[in-house]
Design a protein around this nucleic acid. Structure first.
Lengths: 376, 376
DNA sequence: GGGCTTTGTTGGAAGGTTCCAATGACGATA
DNA sequence: TATCGTCATTGGAACCTTCCAACAAAGCCC
């Protein structure tokens, strides 16, 4: 116990009040706590960070003063010495339910590990990706998680060698990747349709023109599976649907309706994502094409929406929660251990629902749900 | 022009290499740039921030060296002096499409104003809200935007008086609020249903038990409108549907199915949000109750999903983009001007779609879309 | 030609934390 | 008693930027 007489001079006495902005009373610092508690800033720091070698009485005193003053650590100051416990998360568009779900689960996992996330969106533009990544790096994020990635090598070069990064449910050249086997998923989708008698199976993805495609693996899986089955992959309408430069929904829809109205339209569509699949479904509804009687649709992701009775979308499921958790875990390993990242590739699963049916088999209609399906 | 002989001693000579973690070559600082460019750190800082009073030649030299060294500002260090250009955004759950849309638009508007966002989710729990808000304040965010708010006063007290905050599409005691007139919206919904002949109109919201309700205004609007029409608001099943402690989807669904199976079920439901409305619709589909023939449903928000032909949800539309943009604008005003926040209340709009129909009017079925409707 | 303003540049302080080496107190051991 | 190790605490350096007062040089005015 030491000079408490001096210790009880409260902060107020030592803080000159600037009349101009006096209502913005400066936030207390550990030095203020130290002054009031009659100890040193180092000890305060040790208490607050739960370090050993602090006398219980001192600890209690510091904690009490800290509470009284309403102390709140200044993260910026800490970040000057320590690597920030912040993860950068790059997603394409939060309006895409898959991106949103992934962001939600990543945020949850990160929070559990006492990390915060800095979220940026790219809209699939490599240029914007570059810009936003720069911001993340300026914040010195501990790691970057790409939930969508343009594939542009030049973007990654900005990461240099000090910031670990990894791909979640997407791939890029080099780097760790936590995802499902997308080729296998595409194979499941195509073979499911082929088993139902479909031969004219189109691949549809909405990508911005002049942008690198983000769906390479899913498309590759499609062409490979088609080839293996002796089916023609190219030449069908709908392959890589380009939206206008603005990528507006209306442009996409117009293009989709046009495709579905054509005489040479496919009998089944494998879409690059559930989001796209639902857009296809809606376009079909709009032109009066019955799903699945006249058009079968398979998506990819298994977003919550796909499980609604009204949508009942057959899709290739990704274990979203697991992907997010493993990704965060892998990121933290790379940050804290510096371990070279191990890539995971989880197995996708086909969820057969009501948006696919046997070719020309009008009798079963849309209500039929196959054996392996689960509603929720 | 000054001593360039010394200037061209490159950084390498002055950086002692720590053999342990030499692969983590430290990021260059403005001091490194100054050394190489043969000037002072202050001048480098002035150049990088585009300040006046710098000789063009010096400016060019600094910029070139900065480029060469791959300099990237350390935001944490800047934040020690300047208020961070970071907005804290509090949302309930990104899996709720409305929250995700709002987050997306806020992120977009913030980016346009060269702000970054720090996103946290609360799952509607006041306790978690408190925790996550603490994190935002530790980061010294320039302002906090609540997209959902528990309503707990104690949470706001943590904001003290130095961080502006505002409510976007939600309300809290005090503070600026940018939202639609939710009571008016509720009135539109209820009167729409009443005009179709409905009298047994239930209000449904999914809130976690023991949590403050976030939908106070929408509920208040409902009871007021019902009273004004001489209808009974209380006593009907479905009012404030409580999910289990875990808030699992399954628990909600079970409860909904139970409600819809009862003999005293309502003929129409006004749901607190589109997300909830879609859950109700799905539960109706699951128990074979036809919408809108046997059950009319009105939502609130007008999320993208509601516009799908298959869902075609009648709903009270919020001008989401405008709300987000105004909110960011208002936040920045409060940050930079310090102006007292002006609250806005935009007018909601009823989007009549296929999920509502005249009571017992079986003839029209679900395909009917009324005059004022727009598909997208 | 002396004082004034303008332009360009500078070093030092400040901002709030963590890290580190050093110090003192105290009991245990040789 | 001298030496050692452990515990508790401490001041100063470091982290990287921005802010500010100060200064030098040059041009301008009367």
């Amino acid at each position: 116990m030491r000079n408490f007489s001096a210790a009880h001079r409260r902060m107020a006495s030592t803080m000159p009040d600037s009349p101009a902005k006096s209502h913005l009373k400066k936030a207390p610092t550990i030095i203020d706590i130290a002054r009031v508690a009659g100890t040193s800033k180092s000890t305060v720091s040790n208490v607050l960070r739960g370090k050993a070698h602090v006398e219980p009485a001192t600890r209690a005193r510091v904690l009490q003063v800290s509470e009284e003053l309403g102390y709140r650590i200044n993260i910026a100051a800490r970040h000057l010495r320590q690597r920030p416990r912040v993860l950068g998360v790059v997603v394409g568009d939060l309006r895409n339910p898959f991106d949103a779900e992934m962001a939600a689960f990543i945020e949850q996992a990160a929070t559990a590990a006492s990390y915060t996330i800095l979220l940026v969106t790219t809209n699939g533009s490599a240029e914007r990706e570059r810009q936003r990544l720069k911001v993340l790096l300026e914040h010195r994020v501990a790691a970057v998680l790409f939930v969508s990635f343009s594939g542009a090598r030049s973007v990654l070069s900005a990461l240099e060698h000090d910031t670990p990064w990894l791909f979640v449910s997407c791939r890029g050249s080099g780097g760790t990747s936590i995802s499902v086997d997308e080729r296998e998923g595409a194979r499941l989708a195509v073979e499911h349709l082929a088993a139902l008698g479909h031969r004219r199976i189109s691949y549809v993805s909405t990508t911005l023109a002049h942008q690198p495609r983000m769906d390479a693996a899913r498309y590759a899986g499609y062409t490979r599976a088609m080839k293996a089955l002796g089916l023609q992959a190219g030449g069908l309408p709908g392959v890589r649907l380009k939206a206008g430069e603005d990528g507006s929904e209306d442009a996409v829809h117009a293009r989709l309706r046009e495709m579905l109205a054509g005489e040479d339209r496919p009998s089944a569509i494998y879409a690059a994502s559930d989001f796209t699949a639902v857009e296809v479904m809606d376009a079909a509804d709009a032109v009066g094409l019955r799903v699945p009687r006249e058009l079968s649709i398979v998506g990819f992701d298994d977003i919550a929406l796909a499980r609604l009775t009204r949508i009942s979308l057959t899709t290739v499921a990704q274990p979203t929660v697991q992907l997010a958790e493993r990704a965060v875990q892998a990121a933290i390993e790379q940050i804290e251990v510096g371990a070279a990242g191990r890539s995971y590739s989880l197995a996708p699963r086909l969820m057969a629902r009501g948006s696919t049916a046997r070719l020309r088999d009008a009798a079963t209609g849309g209500a039929r749900v196959r054996g392996s399906a689960r509603r929720r």
